[in-house]
Nucleic acid binder design. Structure first.
Lengths: 337, 337
DNA sequence: TTGAAAGCGCTAACAT
DNA sequence: ATGTTAGCGCTTTCAA
């Protein structure tokens, strides 16, 4: 079932069918409706590969997302889609299968769909110029930046929070409440990623406040999912090392940690305060409400699009934006007993 | 940057480059490495549109998902991806932009990528043969079935729970605990979708147990997101109509409802029991743990793949599978005071 | 207003 | 072992 079949069935040439399908003006009404009728009859659907192949340019912007079920991304994706449409472009969403090279996938997508630009959501923090060379279009890293890589600053754009500074701020909220025995729950202290950056902020806050870093209060989960966070918290508790507050590097992990604390008989915040970073939807609905530093997810998506469109339309050069988080005071933090 | 450029730069023909790129055996080592070197140098990335266009068949199975941020889908997607790989195929994930026709999108994808089969996740409940005619490959509806449509049973496959029966079962759990004043929180009583089916189950349970349906206890949110559920619950409470238990049609909505109940001073389960359907990850981490009927998300994904592969390999005809849920007793249900 | 034909980038016969 | 070439399905000049 190709455009040729449609052409034959309606007794016109393929170019005429193509014109109808693409709403070109100079086709007679009679022919137009005849073709459309045939299309319906034959259930013809154009092959977008063929289309993409031949079209010199598209109006599409790619959004490449790593990590299917990450609740933090949901709102960013929504915002990006809306902003892209608003700007008069089309968004192509591409999910990276677990364990695939996102730059590679992005480059393929870019070439296939003839993308104008790319937004990367949840990529690695350590790209090299070598890797990104395949990307011949402007791209912006959203919600992360290339902290561990060797990319030159003018080679890309980014919109992110300052993970280390925000983590430090979160821990300082606890310290200001009077906490000195503060545990941390994270993926890994050296994952070359968000976890490592936020861990640095934790360390910095402690040291700036004269609190010694206590290895027994550092709980590594080895993963970002909730069950790992739950188990990690259990193990932390099993160490019997006293702490009055817990800083968790992500909301979703914090929710699991709250449950683990509850299940082991600790009340939040009376026995243990808890603070996190992200501001996912779900964190408003915990009991008590999670105290967290909210990343401006909508604004980040919009800003990423703005930067990219500026580059695409050559209205401005690349930029790196640091967004601020907003502290939402929930019920999960109080002064220590 | 095309295969032709690579060919010229390495002094061979395009077919040789193609052979190298596709790991064909009969290429000399010398040529192979020379080509690979050039590929690296030029940062060549193949154009997958051109590839898809020319390949007579692929080994790909499509997973078309409607609704980016639905936490229920996350685990299904993971399971499908794994099962597809296990079966020796490749999964192509495609997210439907909000408000687009999924059948149309699926058909385009199928033709472009030459898919062998399709899995639809979270589609409509009312397809017509007319619509699905464009799909010329086998497809299976996962987590829903065509309850309101006019598709013939032998035209497709499905894997889903019996939404009405399971909803009835959930409400019966409450009734058996002694509840008679049972409210329901849902999207809409007639959305021709999951909400309507589960509402029917609620009505059935009431009527079978001689409990009159009380319109004041039916709370429609008009949406599936948590903030709508929260507000819906507030409005329900504002009616001042007494109830001792609440059935919510989805876990995510139930979590928001729990918060709304808590915020208005009701204890769960002492003042109000709550039960839902789905079994998303997050529902294990609420306090108290949500009592819910867990859909076997992994098994559903696996089964969908099994059915599809059977059809693709012509080992079996289409099938419709009804899965059972598992009641997880959390702390959110108790006898009424 | 319509048709013929070139060509997008690639793979796979078919030659050599 | 390598090169030549014919398409895959579509859009778009260019002619008529």
């Amino acid at each position: 079932m190709t455009i040729k079949d449609v052409a034959e069935h309606s007794g016109v040439s393929v170019s005429t069918v193509s014109r109808v399908l693409n709403n070109h003006p100079d086709v007679s009404e009679a022919v137009r409706s005849r073709v459309l009728e045939t299309v319906r009859e034959l259930h013809y659907v154009p092959n977008s590969s063929a289309r993409d192949l031949v079209r010199p340019q598209s109006d599409a912007i790619g959004l490449v997302v790593r990590g299917v079920g990450n609740p933090f991304f949901s709102s960013v994706i929504r915002a990006v889609e809306q902003a892209v449409n608003q700007a008069g472009y089309t968004m192509v969403l591409h999910q990276i299968p677990s364990g695939e090279d996102e730059i590679r996938a992005a480059a393929e997508l870019a070439r296939s769909k003839r993308l104008l630009g790319l937004i990367l959501l949840g990529g690695c923090f350590d790209y090299t110029p070598e890797q990104t060379a395949a990307l011949e279009i402007p791209f912006v890293c959203c919600s992360f930046t290339n902290s561990f890589g060797s990319l030159k600053k003018d080679a890309y754009s980014s919109v992110s929070i300052d993970d280390q500074a925000e983590a430090r701020r979160a821990v300082e909220v606890l310290i200001r409440q009077g906490h000195r025995k503060i545990a941390v729950l994270l993926d890994s202290v050296q994952d070359h990623s968000i976890s490592e950056l936020r861990y640095r902020g934790y360390c910095q806050a402690l040291s700036e406040n004269g609190i010694p870093l206590e290895p027994d209060l550092v709980a590594e989960t080895g993963a970002f999912d909730m069950s790992a966070a739950y188990e990690g918290t259990r193990r932390l508790l099993a160490r019997k090392k006293e702490f009055t507050a817990l800083f968790v590097i992500a909301d979703s992990m914090a929710i699991a940690a709250m449950k683990a604390l509850h299940d082991s008989g600790r009340r939040i915040p009376e026995d243990c305060s808890i603070i996190a970073i992200d501001g996912i939807d779900m964190s408003s609905y915990t009991v008590p409400t999670l105290t967290t530093l909210i990343q401006p997810q909508e604004a980040m998506g919009e800003e990423a699009v703005r930067i990219l469109v500026d580059m695409v339309e050559e209205r401005a050069a690349n930029r790196h934006i640091r967004m601020d988080t907003t502290l939402r005071i929930g019920g999960s933090v109080a002064a220590p007993n």
